[in-house]
Design a protein around this nucleic acid. Structure first.
Length: 803
RNA sequence: GCCGCGGUGGCGGAAUUGGUAGACGCGUACGACUCAAAAUCGUAUCUCGCAAGGGGUGAGGGUUCGAUUCCCUCCCGCGGCACCA
């Protein structure tokens, strides 16, 4: 009796027809646009598991919804295919990484196609395609020309496992390589660096303009790590000036010593002035070793050595103070030197106690705080909050905020900011990446490859292994390396480092707007039409990709390539799907579920509805085959719903349909797919029980179409339509029907629910009260006491207070 | 330690301009159909209680006629940063 739900037949049929008819073709048109984007995948050899498509399903629903509501939609897919896994595979199997990449892409694509997505494959991109990385190189050259890409010889993170330099962002919190878990070393070497710090302020401030989840904005703020403070110069007894950075210039009168980082250049400069130079140099050596050995040790007690023979002068009060060298001061942050105020800084406090240095209070400690704290050391309490100044000469009684500026000014300091974010170490000594388009010339130095000679393509090599000497495999190919200088025509050598994995993904969204253009990265017209990305969907990557892409975008904005300040207006964070056992899906645990198997078993529509119904989109939730079966059951009932079509339907059904339409529209817009599905289930439950008209039935199919594109298309055609349901108009609610004419509200006696009444939402208090008195239970209660107060909120609640 | 987010049945979760807590789905129990099972359908399902009624949204307090929602203190979980001056 039940119509069978032949998902396999239906899905293959429609996928083929959609591809042939080109209903998902994207064009630049006069319609309003929507650009919906997924973080494009790295096509790994393992293929997709059921967690991967979750975000793609969401953007697919969103883009179908937008198309059905009259928008031109760009919903593309591409491949982020440079990087170490393909290269390591190549090393192991002695095949070109290209071979593995092409194979993996083909596999990914076939897996995605089975899920019925509405991608326009004409817009596909691949970061390893020379016609693509030509523009990655072009961006690098623009950065170079503006002085934002430069060569540096500073020590950088070197991964002995991957045999390459790494950016700060590529390290785990414990200082290991995020790819191979090796302990990363510091190694001085020549490298290309991008001045991302120049954009730190703009990246920080513009976060406020973005519709992004708070935790991601917060992660970016932390990573950029701006501290507002002042630089203050201290004159040493040697006559040198040392600049310190402090966020608390208001406490300058309490600076009783000064600390230099072990790497501070001043030590080398003044060896002869230091009477305990061997002790100092020993400490420097130890500090250098210690740092590499265990950065994890958080029980570390502060250590340091007093530099004998050199003192500094506190510019606020002219007092002579000792100078220490200690590794709790980092060379890479601020100026590598600090003024130490033990009374108002916990680290300085700890150090001063250990080395018996004067602790001088210069901020008044509030009495309540003093009483709370029992530890008073040498008459002083550590107090790190701002407050009112004492022991600070003319600045006494001043408030911290005011004093920061006043004191800085008095001692000739400068208010300034400092940042935790490091400039982006951009070169890798590996094969499978974009060649950095630079030629080194003995006469002209590093010279950009002329734009008309781009792309600089990756040459064929015999060995993909890194040389191990800090050179990339490209360095061995003499005929490729040796070239002529574009400027003077003399002998030149090509740069042999390649770009990091993150280069291609830092601007790929732009290429989708105009992926065939070989004259420009993106044409002005197309960029104007599509930018910015309206909704960007992905997980992870809170810092790296999203920081790098914002940086490049802002740079492209500055040179006039793009017209918006930010690339991704709205970001929706994707929660992952865990295996049924609650662990991450991984080959290692043998708990990976392949979407191909699910599609085979219950169909793509079921998978789609299930993944959206699992829970809030941003939550990480374990897979459940029972839950999947529930989604399948729902679609089977939809498949059989036509059996309940009648000439007429109850008002309740009509009303619920329109409320459901309203809810689904709002929920898709807000990425609340779980409650959208729930609302549609509620409608089907009622429609099955009470029957529905053909008109309501067809309306419902269009409502469900973005979620379950195959079965709805099938039923839509079965109902006599020739055009695809996916180019039909999305239902709009009749607002006269979404507003209730009758509502059921709770009746409370003294705040306890004792029953409910059904009345018009506009009913006045008297009506509600008399209605309530019809309830026996309530009536009895009311007779027991005297009404002293009635709280009536129309449409919400009736609360009767009795004595 | 600092910052951000969160804590609701057996499970995923719903409901927040303060207004009937537990929608929807899963699971479970019982029933129908069946020789039987699966599938399907029906009923029940926060908890104590035969019932009337009581308790209940991490814990404790507060504001309010009324608190999952607002405020304070605390506990726990997740995420980011972490000797960053």
């Amino acid at each position: 009796m039940h119509k069978r739900f032949e998902h396999k037949e239906i899905e293959t049929k429609w996928q083929k027809k959609w591809a042939e008819s080109g209903i998902y073709k994207t064009t630049e048109s006069s319609k309003p646009k929507t650009f919906v984007l997924d973080m494009f995948p790295y096509p790994s050899g393992e293929g997709l598991h059921v967690g991967h498509p979750k975000g793609y399903i969401a953007t697919d629903i969103y883009s179908r919804f937008k198309r059905m509501t009259g928008h031109e939609v760009l919903h593309p897919m591409g491949w982020d295919a440079f990087g170490l896994p393909a290269e390591n595979f190549a090393i192991k199997h002695k095949v070109h990484p290209r071979v593995a990449v092409d194979k993996n892409i083909a596999n990914f694509k076939s897996q995605l196609e089975k899920l019925g997505f509405d991608y326009d494959w004409d817009r596909e991109i691949n970061t390893t395609d020379p016609s693509y990385y030509k523009w990655t190189q072009w961006i690098f050259i623009q950065l170079f020309k503006k002085g934002l890409a430069f060569e540096s010889h500073e020590p950088i993170n070197w991964c002995p496992g991957c045999q390459t330099g790494l950016a700060n962002e590529d390290l785990e919190a414990d200082g290991t390589c995020e790819r191979c878990d090796s302990v990363v070393e510091k190694r001085p070497m020549r490298q290309w660096v991008l001045k991302i710090r120049e954009y730190a302020d703009r990246m920080l401030e513009d976060l406020d303009t973005l519709e992004w989840p708070e935790h991601i904005k917060e992660a970016q703020r932390n990573w950029i790590g701006r501290s507002e403070g002042a630089e203050i110069d201290f004159v040493l007894s040697t006559g040198d000036t040392v600049t310190v950075f402090t966020t608390r210039p208001d406490t300058l009168f309490g600076a009783t010593y000064m600390v230099l980082a072990p790497e501070h250049e001043l030590i080398f400069k003044n060896r002869t002035a230091i009477s305990n130079i061997s002790e100092v140099e020993n400490y420097i050596k130890e500090a250098a070793n210690k740092k590499e050995m265990d950065r994890l040790d958080d029980t570390k007690e502060k250590t340091g050595v007093k530099i004998e023979g050199i003192t500094a002068t506190n510019p606020a009060n002219g007092e002579e103070i000792p100078v220490y060298i200690a590794d709790y001061v980092l060379a890479s942050y601020g100026t590598g030197a600090i003024m130490a105020v033990p009374a108002h800084d916990e680290r300085d406090w700890e150090f001063a106690k250990k080395y018996e240095i004067e602790i001088r209070q210069v901020i008044q400690v509030p009495e309540e705080y003093r009483l709370e704290k029992e530890i008073v050391e040498r008459g002083t309490i550590i107090y790190v909050s701002p407050g009112r100044l004492i022991n600070s000469g003319e600045f006494n009684e001043m408030d911290s905020e005011e004093a920061k500026k006043a004191i800085t000014k008095k001692v000739g300091g400068r208010m300034t900011n400092t940042y935790k974010i490091r400039d982006w170490v951009f070169s890798r000594q590996r094969y499978w990446g974009e060649p950095i388009p630079i030629v080194h010339c003995g006469k002209c130095g590093p010279v950009a490859v002329p734009e008309d000679q781009l792309p600089v393509t990756l040459p064929e090599v015999e060995h993909y292994e890194p040389a191990g000497d800090g050179q990339s495999p490209l360095a061995n190919i003499d005929e490729w390396v040796n070239t002529t200088c574009p400027t003077c025509g003399g002998a030149g050598k090509r740069e042999t480092n390649t770009m990091p994995q993150w280069a291609g993904s830092s601007w790929y969204y732009l290429r989708f707007m105009d992926n065939k253009n070989d004259k420009a990265l993106v044409s002005k017209e197309n960029e104007k039409y599509w930018a910015p990305v309206d909704v960007y969907v992905g997980g992870d990557h809170a810092v790296r990709h999203l920081i790098y892409a914002r940086f490049w975008h802002k740079f492209l904005y500055d040179i006039g390539v793009v017209s918006t300040n930010e690339p991704f207006q709205r970001l929706e964070f994707l929660g992952f799907i865990l295996a049924e056992d609650g662990r991450k899906m991984s080959k290692r645990w043998g708990n990976v579920i392949n979407p191909d198997d699910i599609v085979e078993l219950v169909g793509a529509d079921t998978l789609r509805v299930y993944e959206m119904f699992m829970g809030p989109f941003e939550n990480t939730i374990a897979w459940s085959k029972d839950g999947l079966a529930g989604a399948r059951r729902f679609l089977e009932r939809v498949n059989g719903l036509s059996a309940h079509i009648n000439k007429n339907e109850t008002k309740e059904v009509t009303t619920l349909l329109h409320k459901t339409i309203k809810k689904v529209r709002e929920d898709i817009e807000a990425f609340k797919f779980n409650t959208a599905v729930s609302a549609m289930m509620i409608f089907v439950n009622l429609a099955e029980k009470e029957g529905l008209t053909n008109h309501s039935y067809e309306t419902f199919l269009r409502l469900l179409a973005p979620f379950a594109p195959h079965i709805t298309e099938e039923l839509h055609h079965e109902a006599g339509h020739d055009e695809s349901i996916h180019v039909a108009e999305f239902p709009s609610p009749d607002h006269t029907l979404t507003v209730d004419t009758e509502v059921t509200i709770g009746v409370q006696i003294n705040g306890k629910v004792r029953g409910d009444i059904t009345i018009s939402p506009g009913a006045v208090e008297e009506e509600a009260l008399s209605e309530a008195k019809n309830i026996p239970n309530i009536k009895t209660k009311l007779e027991e006491g005297k009404i002293i107060k009635v709280i009536y909120k129309p449409g919400k609640i009736l609360n009767i207070i009795i004595d």
